[in-house]
Design a protein around this nucleic acid. Sequence first.
DNA 1: GCACAGGAAGTAAACGTTTACGTAAAATGA
DNA 2: TCATTTTACGTAAACGTTTACTTCCTGTGC
Lengths: 334, 334
Amino acid sequence: MATIKDVAKKANVSIATVSRILNNKEGFTEETRKKVMKTIEELGYHPNAVARGLISKRTNTIGVLVPRISSMLVSDMVTGIENVAHEAGTSVIVCHTESNGQKTMQYLHLLKEKQVDGIIFTSEVLLKDYYEFISRFNIPLVLLSTESINFQVPSVKVDDRLASYDAVEYLIGMGHRKIGMLSGNKKDMIAGMPRVEGFKMALETNGVEVEESLIEYGRGFSYEDGASGFERLFKRHSDLTAVFAASDEMALGMISKAHRMGISVPEQVSVVGFDNIAVSEMCIPALTTIAQPVQEMSERAARMMLDMINLNANVQSSAYPHRIVERESVKRLK
Amino acid sequence: MATIKDVAKKANVSIATVSRILNNKEGFTEETRKKVMKTIEELGYHPNAVARGLISKRTNTIGVLVPRISSMLVSDMVTGIENVAHEAGTSVIVCHTESNGQKTMQYLHLLKEKQVDGIIFTSEVLLKDYYEFISRFNIPLVLLSTESINFQVPSVKVDDRLASYDAVEYLIGMGHRKIGMLSGNKKDMIAGMPRVEGFKMALETNGVEVEESLIEYGRGFSYEDGASGFERLFKRHSDLTAVFAASDEMALGMISKAHRMGISVPEQVSVVGFDNIAVSEMCIPALTTIAQPVQEMSERAARMMLDMINLNANVQSSAYPHRIVERESVKRLK
DNA sequence: GCACAGGAAGTAAACGTTTACGTAAAATGA
DNA sequence: TCATTTTACGTAAACGTTTACTTCCTGTGC
């Protein structure tokens, strides 16, 4: 395989000159540039990024940690990040942590060894161990679709509490009073708790009594959680007219289960979801949901990362606006 | 940041010894091992994979090229590959080619510069340029969910023609005669043409006349393609009782459009899809479809890749069995 | 004609590892 | 006990770049 030395020898220049030419560093004439470029072409030479990385301490690579949540959400995030990263000449290594602490630590070690320029951590609680490891080595870090309460780390996310509040208020506006909630994991401080709080707040603010039994907690935010959760919820409250689901997948699970139980959506019970994943508009009835601009947010996170890396910038966390996407899963009560 | 030199100095040994210990290379006593490990711990030393990669010519990294097809399929593939790769201590760099030839070549250059140990190319036609570039540098290559007719490259995929044949024969078995097809891109030699051929073959074999107008070609395999395709198809043949869609997303698009047109699935028209993506069982009606064991296939591809890299093995292409997943989108005609 | 600025190019060190080779001491065998 | 093998470890080169420092040359101003 041709190296910079081969090019230098064949072109009768020093390797420094070749390097300068490749990096546009001034100190050569147009004539030698042409000559060198020609022999590069002839030899089919490609610079070795590993060698370059060794000396420049830059690998042009970032790591992205994703948990085992909705594969669609994850896919959107990775795509968004990868797009802007690639634009800037940097690659992304994906790491599926499966929400497993041990595996996550393993990945962090790996990424550190690989000398990634930065890490984007998504959709999960940033544990102390993670944070300490990352900051000990001064690796730039940004959080996507999550945030840290204990540590100061730039993040990109929507205001979950507020989004949830709006969703429920929307239902109330449509005439619903008896509203249930399909929540994710109770212990999730990011997407769990805040959404429940928003739910309660919306009810209270609008003078609807809050009953704990109207909230059904799931293991996670999956289709399965939504389906089984709804069954239990409905058993307790067969008179509810609407449900707010903490994720679109849960909403889909609920719709499916309702269908099987002979309950029609939205005629008998309305539902609004959360996330606006691609399929939410593909299903029947098309899902009314809270949209997170995931692609945009991901791109933002990537850009923040790049700024931290290249400009050593002190980036700010940014809250993204959610919005309600009205489709067909909510019925207006007279 | 601590390097191997720091460790060596602090532990009073040579760097060679530290290296040997870290790589289990024999040539040290248990005593010195303990001593060295202790100072590694104290210094918080982590080996630098870049330096290691430079000399060992191994980066423990592979590149995965994915096109802009169903984000769910892509997600499953990447997950499958990443899982087994990580198991073996290698990372994966994802590259979204967006089915863009120029961008793909860019990525190939990038991956070569980054000295990846191998490349997994998915779901797309392997162009001559791609192949030549990759093979010129002797980069191990495996194809996932695609294959090459002109070049000999190990691949993992299902037999599209056969799968398609089975799908259509299934419909015939359910009493359907007037069957339309929603195909993807006509020019796609991998997932386009073969599936159409399977469709025709099944009809012929079962004594049903084949009409070209029963086939509607799309731009790709998307939801949109399915929706608009069905509308045109139905305009030509309002008497069809079943449709075979070349992808689940297309099938979903069709169902949605049918719903809007006041046509009920499966009562008036049945449909079978292709892929068995996660949401196909979440929708209403749940989709009857041809399942490709994507996760399994992806894992297989990754394992093949690792074998090529580590054992220099001469791996064999493997065809994976598809199967029909019967759900609720097909009605039996008496 | 000379001092000197400035540009083009070369030299060599450095980045953090792995590893072939060398060496001294310990273990083995007779 | 001595010769020989084995073991534990050190030395230094190599991997393919970037870059600080140097050198050489051309041109400029006086």
